[in-house]
Structure formats: structure tokens, C-alpha cells
């Protein structure tokens, strides 16, 4: 499989070199693989940190900046970053108001962030709160699994929580916003093709040309079921229906995201959003804001995911607040 790389071991570091070159407003710690807001730590502001395996760009490094994250720790491709990275980032964004860790619900991420929080408590005086994102309705049997995965909702949560911290809310209030977003958001994804992890050099799983995977995660981990390829309209229904069956999204405004997995063109993503919106209209769901594009990807996987979030007036105003990051930018 052809890749725009020099060597498989240098992919993440060399991508960070590129981010530093393209975004002088950010500060990049190459040794620790951390992307910082140029002006962090900001006095009096709650520090927001996230991180995760690489391969989901623009998540998380592309969401560092005013109105969103203060720092993002990059792990190897599809591999959680390590506790020493989160510890270093925690110390450097702590301006005395505490630090919020935003963690996607994966076994490795949970353990590494947990160790980082233990180390931060022991080593620096930083007060750390943790919010876990677990929005993937594809995981049905969450009692007998590692629980629902953190997927598309992470993007909306980082934006909205970032706005709350930027507005000067304290650690508890900022964490409450994050928890409210997690409670009111759900996602479901699908894949047309597998991704290719650079170090593996071949597709993570075999998916025949006439089949697709419904309920896919963002690491090439297979989903819930494999079905024959279908028209976009039917795919949209397969993604939206399980979300609406899991949580009632009628009776209030909703933020909707149609996210690309990295290998599907915007032409198809907009086509899909049209289908999703038609289903939502019919189901009586009022979309107040929408976002279409590649925001939480799975390397070069073709496919998409749908995320819906119940948004009250407060969440909508936090969503509309200015944001200035490589991946999301408005109101500035």
C-alpha cells in the first residue's frame, strides 16, 4: 500500500514537524509529542487536555487553540499516548484553575490517563478531573465489553467544553458541561474499506468489494455486522436508526455531525448528510447546527459516521462561541 511517508517509525513525529511548520501559532514539543496552544497556560483558565493514538487527524492536535484544547498528546498510530506525556502536558497547562482530561473510552487510553492522573497527584499539585467519552451505539452489550467506544462525539465535546473553559467557568462547571455533552450525544459509524496502518502496510481487515461494515470503530477494529453494499439512502438509515432508538432526540435542538473516516470524498459526505437530514426531518428531529467533513478519521478508511447531540441554549451558545484551531475555526 502506497503512503506519503519516509519511514514507518517516523510518521507521527514527522507529521508533528509539519504541524509546527504550518501552524506557528501553536507550540510543539516534539520530544514528548505534545501540541500546545501558543499562549498556554492561560492565567485563571481551566486547562483542557486530550490525547489518543494518532491516525484520527485532525483529532486531537488539530483541535488545539483558542476556544478548544490547551494541549493534545499524540500516541503512536492507533495507540494511546503514555502517562509521562499526559503528566508533562498537565503540568504545563495548569494555571492554577485545574486541568480536565478528556479521554475516549478505550482500555489503553483509560489506563494511561489513569496512571497520568495518579502521577500528577503525586508529583505536582495539579487538580485533575477526567471525563470519559463513550458515545458509540454500535457497542450494544456494554456490560460484557470494555463499554461503548469514544468516537465522533469527542469532536463536539472538545469544542463545547473548550468554549466553557475559555469563558472562565471553573473546573467543576467545565467538567459538568463535558458530562452533559457525553450524556446527550450518540454516534454510529460504517466503513466501505479497511484502513492501512503504516507499520502494517496492508489492510487491517479484509472487506470484499461488495460488502460494508456497519458499526465500525475508528481503529479498523471491525464493527457489529457485515452486510451487502447498499445505496447511500439505506446506509444513512442504518446509521441514524440505531442512534434514535438509543436516545430520544425530539423535542429540542440537535447538533448533527456527518464525519468522514478519511478515505471518502466530501462529495459523498455531503450526499450522505442530505440523506441523514431527510431521515431526521421525517423523525421530527430539529437540527439546529451541522458539521460535515473529516474530523475524527481512521487513517485512509472509506466510510462515515453520524453523531447527534441534544443541545440546549447553553450548549448551542458554547458551540457558536469563537474557535481558532487548525481543524475548526469560526467566529474569529
Amino acid at each position: 500500500m502506497k503512503k506519503l511517508i519516509n519511514g514507518v517509525d517516523d510518521v507521527v513525529t514527522e507529521a508533528l514537524v509539519g504541524i509546527a511548520a504550518a501552524h506557528p501559532e501553536l507550540r510543539i514539543d516534539l520530544a514528548n509529542r505534545i501540541v500546545y496552544r501558543g499562549d498556554a497556560p492561560k492565567a485563571g483558565k481551566v486547562g483542557l487536555i486530550s490525547g489518543g493514538g494518532s491516525g484520527h487527524e485532525p483529532l486531537h492536535g488539530g483541535f488545539v487553540g483558542r476556544g478548544m484544547l490547551d494541549a493534545a498528546c499524540a500516541g503512536a498510530v492507533f495507540t494511546s499516548p503514555t502517562p509521562d506525556q499526559m503528566l508533562e502536558a498537565t503540568k504545563n497547562v495548569d494555571a492554577g484553575a485545574g486541568v480536565l482530561h478528556i479521554v475516549k473510552n478505550y482500555t489503553g487510553d483509560i489506563m494511561n490517563f489513569e496512571m497520568a492522573a495518579e502521577m500528577a497527584a503525586a508529583e505536582s499539585g495539579a487538580t485533575v478531573e477526567t471525563v470519559v467519552v463513550d458515545d458509540d451505539v454500535a457497542v450494544q452489550d456494554s456490560l460484557y465489553t470494555a463499554g461503548r467506544r469514544g468516537v465522533g462525539l469527542t469532536v463536539l465535546l472538545e469544542k463545547i467544553t473548550g468554549a466553557a473553559a475559555e469563558a472562565g467557568r471553573d473546573l467543576a462547571a467545565t467538567a459538568d458541561v463535558a458530562k452533559k455533552v457525553n450524556a446527550g450525544g450518540r454516534s454510529m459509524g460504517m466503513a466501505l474499506t479497511s484502513c492501512v496502518v503504516p507499520a502494517a502496510g496492508k489492510p487491517t481487515f479484509d472487506l470484499p468489494a461488495d460488502e460494508m461494515e456497519i458499526g465500525i470503530g475508528i481503529h479498523g477494529e471491525p464493527g457489529r455486522r457485515r452486510v451487502p453494499l447498499a445505496p447511500a439512502r439505506e446506509i444513512a438509515a442504518m446509521l441514524v436508526e440505531p442512534i434514535l432508538a438509543d436516545l430520544d432526540f425530539t423535542g429540542g435542538p440537535v447538533i448533527a455531525m456527518l464525519n468522514g473516516m478519511g478515505g471518502s470524498p466530501l462529495l459523498e459526505l455531503y450526499l450522505m448528510y442530505g440523506e441523514v437530514k431527510a431521515i431526521l426531518d421525517k423523525a421530527g428531529v430539529t437540527v439546529a447546527r451541522s458539521l460535515v467533513g473529516n474530523y475524527i478519521t481512521s487513517l485512509d478508511m472509506a466510510g462515515c459516521s453520524v453523531t447527534l447531540l441534544k443541545a440546549d441554549a447553553d450548549l448551542l451558545s458554547l458551540w457558536d462561541a469563537p474557535v481558532s484551531t487548525p481543524g475548526l475555526r469560526w467566529g474569529v
Binding site: P83, D84, G108
Partner: peptide, 11 residues
Amino acid sequence: VTSVGGASGPL
């Protein structure tokens, strides 16, 4: 812990 990441590193 500091070089592996994932779940294997902490474990």
C-alpha cells in the same frame, strides 16, 4: 509504561 502506550504498556 513510557514507551509502549496502548493497554500493553500500563499492563
